[in-house]
């Protein structure tokens, strides 16, 4: 009987070990992944994205209502999301509340600043400014290095 049970256990383990299958399930990314503050390289006429963090240092709640940059024809805050039918998409975010001392994270796969129809090439090593527009704090400059 012991041998039979051992055999069944052995086979069960083998199926667990070897049946990862051909399709991987989505894995949630860690919320603690550090943000690499940067803007992606891209060619003139193309699209780039900026990643950084913004912390509300005011004693009161604030709201991010927009973003601008002189290097792109259109600059917006976008959010990457999964559609109901399982596709990946982006949508514009126009009002982002920020509580006192709260940090808003702009990162790959989440909130990010989109720079569309770039006026010039963005090459690694370049430095670029984007400006967040907030209701209370006003215009806040964020200077970023271009890198992959």
């Amino acid at each position: 009987m012991k041998e039979l049970i051992s055999g069944i256990l052995l086979i069960s383990i083998s199926f667990i070990a070897c049946s990862s299958g051909n399709k991987t399930e989505p894995v949630l990314e860690s919320e603690e992944t550090p943000v690499d503050q940067r803007i992606r390289p891209a060619a003139a006429g193309g699209t780039s994205a900026a990643y950084f963090t913004y912390t509300n240092t005011l004693a009161e709640a604030d709201t991010i209502v927009g973003v601008s940059s002189s290097i792109a024809a259109l600059t917006q805050i976008h959010e990457t999301y999964e559609t109901e039918d399982g596709m990946m998409g982006m949508r514009e975010k126009t009002n982002i509340p920020v509580q006192p001392e709260e940090t808003v994270i702009f990162k790959q796969g989440g909130l990010h600043v989109m720079l569309m129809q770039l006026q010039e090439d963005l090459s690694s090593g370049d430095s670029v400014s984007v400006f967040l527009n907030l209701v209370k704090a006003g215009e806040v400059e964020v200077n970023l290095q271009v890198k992959n």
């Binding site: 399709k23 990314e29 596709m87 990946m88």
Partner: peptide, 30 residues
């Protein structure tokens, strides 16, 4: 300007051009 909703996929074909693995293309563990 327009944007596109799309599948998130990386796949592997064997030497006979058969699809043998599919993954969520943007996942960091992939």
């Amino acid at each position: 300007l327009y944007f596109i909703n799309h599948s998130d996929k990386i796949m592997v074909l064997n030497k006979e051009s058969e699809v043998i693995f599919e993954y969520g293309g943007s996942q960091r563990v992939v």
